[in-house]
């Protein structure tokens, strides 16, 4: 009897050790995988950042057909990948032909093909599009767990927080910050619910649109921009000329606090808006330090 029980317990331990089945909570429920995946296909930019942080290279990335959509700081950390097409409609054929053993998908964009993806390989659905800084860190931990790299994740997270804290100390100011993107016909402020806004709050900075908790991207006229009146204003411009070029000729532009004190800067919209992740967040923080401590 005791022998049988012993055998049972022993076999149980052995099986968990060899199979090493891991589970995480994903957007579809609980995701379980039996072995550490080797060939990973990711369907959003932020997942590449997460993988790069634990030294894993994805075999396929939905990069909208252009690898340059990812900033160099991220793409230089991983091996070249095969493009699997647009993020909004990744090519199932290419994904299948890469023979992946893990697919990381976004709930907004990829939910409709979840069943098809599962037929190709185990698929974990994690938040990416419209995520905040904290969401992104949670996703990173989950991806690390699936890749069997809990220790590396812990170390990297610790390093990241230390880094962010040091940078935060160097910035510390009472200024009200704001990031916005502009094209020829309009300007959108990224509030605290956006990635850029939440990174600023992580650094202990005040966001000029702090009250706007519902909408991530706030459509803004010059009148409303004056009302928000940021002390430090970062602008990511899409295109050669934008609406801001016209605004600059308006006398009201010079009444804004950021322009009065010469704290209006241009920023790379790829870094500030497209590529979310820890590497991007650190680069953003470094950029802020540099800008603030400029004489």
């Amino acid at each position: 009897m005791t022998q049988k029980l012993f055998l049972f317990v022993a076999s149980f331990f052995i099986s968990t050790l060899t199979l090493a089945s891991t589970s995480v909570n994903d957007e579809m429920g609980v995701f379980t995988i039996d072995s550490v995946p080797d060939r990973v296909v990711v369907l959003e930019f932020s997942f590449v950042d997460a993988l790069a942080n634990i030294g894993v290279s994805p075999v396929g990335v939905a990069d909208d057909g252009d690898a340059n959509n990812l900033i160099d700081a991220i793409s230089s950390k991983v091996n070249p990948w095969t493009s699997v097409g647009n993020r909004y409609q990744p090519s199932l054929e290419v994904i299948a032909s890469l023979k992946p053993d893990l697919i990381i998908a976004d709930p907004d964009r990829n939910a409709s093909i979840y069943e098809d993806l599962k037929r190709i390989a185990p698929t974990v659905v994690l938040k990416s599009r419209g995520e905040t800084y904290q969401d992104n860190l949670d996703t990173f931990v989950k991806i690390g767990t699936i890749m069997g790299q809990e220790t590396a994740v812990k170390a990297r997270l610790e390093e990241h927080h230390q880094r962010m804290d040091t940078l935060a100390e160097q910035i510390s100011s009472n200024f009200r910050f704001q990031f916005a993107v502009a094209n020829e016909r309009g300007l959108w402020m990224h509030g605290p619910k956006s990635y850029a806004g939440s990174v600023m709050e992580r650094l202990g900075l005040r966001v000029a649109t702090a009250e706007e908790r519902e909408t991530a991207y706030i459509a803004t006229t010059l009148e409303q921009l004056l009302n928000a009146n940021p002390d430090v204003f970062l602008l990511g411009e899409y295109g050669e000329t934008t609406i801001v070029d016209t605004w600059k000729t308006n006398p009201l532009w010079s009444l804004m606090s950021a322009t009065k004190s010469d704290r209006f800067y241009e920023a790379d919209p790829r870094l500030w808006s497209l590529n979310r992740g820890m590497i991007a967040a650190e680069l953003m923080a470094e950029e802020l330090v540099e800008l603030i401590n400029k004489p």
């Binding site: 909208d64 057909g65 493009s83 699997v84 097409g85 647009n86 409609q89 990744p90 090519s91 054929e93 290419v94």
Partner: peptide, 11 residues
Amino acid sequence: ARAIAPPLEFP
């Protein structure tokens, strides 16, 4: 939509 510029897929 799917063969004009693979792997890009258009609607």
